[in-house]
Each structure stands twice: as C-alpha cells, then as structure tokens.
C-alpha cells in the first residue's frame, strides 16, 4: 500500500513540476494544435473531395461536409475500397456508417499520439538521472515507485491532453460542419481520444523504459524515436514474412509483443476485442518500462 502511495506522490509531483515549468502547457498546446489543425484541414479536404465527387456524379453540391461521405458508406464499391484499406472485415463492420470526421480524427489520433508521447515523455527519466535530481527522491522512496510514479504521471498527463484535444477537435468540427454534425459526435470523439490514450501506453512505456538507460535527455529522445520506428518497421516486416507453415508460422506470435499488433482491437466496437487489446497494450507498456527499470535497478544513480 505504501508503494502505491509513493507512486501516487511521484505522479502528483510530476504534474506539479510540469505546471511549474510550463511543460504541461507545452504538452497541452502540442496536442491541441495537432488535433485542431488536423480537424480543420481534414474537413477542408473532405469538403473539396465531396464537391469534386458531386460534380463528377452530376449531383447538386452539398452545403454540409460529410453528407456525401456518410451516404457513400452504403455504396458497395466504397465498402470494398474500405475493406481493402482496413484489411479487416470485423473492423470495417464496426466503423461502417460512422461520420467521416470522427474516423479521420481517430486515425490521426492513433497516428500522432505515439510520436508525441515519445517526444514529450521520452526524456523525463533521463533528465532526472542527468541532473542528479533522482538522488534526492530515491533516498526516500524505492526506485520502482519512482519509475512507476513517473510513468503514471506522464500517462495521466497525456490522457488529459488527449481528452482536451478531443474537445478542441469537436469544437472545430462543430463550427465547420455548421449544424450537420451528428449529436453523438462529441461522445464518439472523446471515446476515440480514450482509445488513442490506451494505444499510447506501450509507447510511453517503451520511451520511458529506454530513458532509464542514459543520463542525456536528447539521447533518450533519439532512442525513443528510433525505438518506435523499429516497432513500426518490425510490424510491417513480421506481417510480410508471416506464413502458414515452418518457422514463419511463429512470426505472428512474435508480433504480439509489439503494440501495432493490437491496434485494430481498439477500433472494434464489441467489448471482447476492445478489452483484450487494452489489456495487452497496458501490459506491454508496463513490460517495456520495467525492462528499462531492470537496468536502472542496481545502477549507480
């Protein structure tokens, strides 16, 4: 119980330190800027695409963005295109009929969150190791509590930033769609923010785990960027080289150790894959983090 309390205090201090140093503001602005710009440009692009489509189909121009795209979901050729894109019939079934703006936000949130996580949180432990601040803390609490507390603090901060960016993105969508936004758009976008947050946990664990290995903040950031690049590339390679027989048949199981293998679970609506994917991702996050911690455990701070 004491360990949990210690963790919580480290997490609180992480927030206090971020607010004091204006770091929290930078994180929030970064996420908000990414979400707002993405939403604004996406709606622009969608509107242009729909206008062109309406012209090509010799239909009257629609004043509201998203109307044509929503109707397109009913088209079989469009469904086939989406099936090719998602390469997953179950996911396609779950996202069919959703407002395109919501899906674009979800896609971008899943895309940029790991990158921002590595940029924002990747150096947090290395900074304290480099400055020697960690010595004042681990004199009083366990190293494990310190590591887990830092992780918890960063995870909560990213979650908060994602929720706020979801609210911001909804505000832009509401303004740009001018009354044509569906009533459940706000709840759905918050839900996607939550899912993107779960997806960010393993990357946060990876970045912070690697941060234990160096005292240089910049090195930790670079290591984090290299690590997520390796994750993306490894996922693609494993998928490409997987086969039904021989040693290649084991490659998909190796892929389970990478976050991308569970991403599609978070796109599902039914609770079973959603829960399984979330548990996998959270576990992977802790495993990455604690692997880094294992190197730090007996090292001279």
């Amino acid at each position: 119980m004491n360990s949990l309390r210690q963790m919580w205090r480290v997490a609180c201090y992480e927030w206090f330190d971020a607010l004091r140093s204006r770091r929290a503001l930078v994180v929030l602005l970064l996420y908000m800027a990414a979400a707002l710009c993405n939403m604004h440009w996406s709606i622009n692009l969608l509107h242009k695409l729909e206008s062109e489509l309406a012209t090509a189909l010799q239909l009257p121009q629609s004043e509201s963005t998203g109307v044509v795209s929503t109707a397109l979901w009913k088209s079989k050729p469009f469904q086939r295109i989406m099936r090719q894109m998602t390469q997953n019939d179950a996911v396609l079934q779950d996202i069919t009929g959703k407002h395109p703006v919501e899906l674009i936000y979800a896609w971008f949130a899943f895309f940029y969150t790991p990158l921002l996580v590595v940029l924002v949180a990747g150096n947090r432990i290395a900074e304290d190791l480099g400055s020697g601040a960690v010595r004042y803390v681990i004199f009083r609490i366990s190293r494990a509590s310190w590591t887990l507390g830092k992780f918890l603090g960063q995870a909560l901060m990213i979650g908060f930033a994602l929720i706020l960016s979801g609210v911001g993105a909804y505000a832009v969508a509401k303004y740009r769609l001018a009354g044509s936004a569906p009533p459940d758009l706000f709840a759905n976008m918050l839900q996607w923010s939550g899912r993107a947050w779960v997806f960010s946990i393993p990357y946060l664990g990876l970045a912070m785990g690697l941060s234990h290995l160096t005292r240089s903040a910049s090195k930790a950031t670079v290591m984090g960027i290299i690590a997520i690049t390796v994750c993306f590339v490894a996922t693609i390679l494993l998928r490409h080289f997987s086969a039904d027989t021989g040693w290649r048949a084991y490659l998909p199981h190796l892929g389970m150790l990478l976050p991308d293998a569970h991403k599609m679970c978070l796109w599902r609506s039914s609770p079973a894959p959603l829960a399984t994917g979330s548990v996998y991702l959270l576990t992977l996050g802790f495993c990455y983090l604690l692997t880094g911690y294992a190197f730090f455990r007996k090292r001279d701070a």
Binding site: I141, S142, A144, V279
Partner: peptide, 25 residues
C-alpha cells in the same frame, strides 16, 4: 544498497506484467 528500499511484495508485483504478458500470449 538500493535493493533494500523495496519490499519482497513490491519485487513480486514488478514481475506481474511479464507473467501476465506470458499468460496472454
């Protein structure tokens, strides 16, 4: 020594994610 700062329970708890991941796979 740094190892003295955490209890045996804490040590076991740190292994939990790895065991869970192993079990999941």
């Amino acid at each position: 020594p740094a190892v003295l700062v955490y209890t045996r329970d804490m040590k076991s708890a740190l292994l939990f994610p790895f065991i869970l991941l192993f079990g999941l796979i």
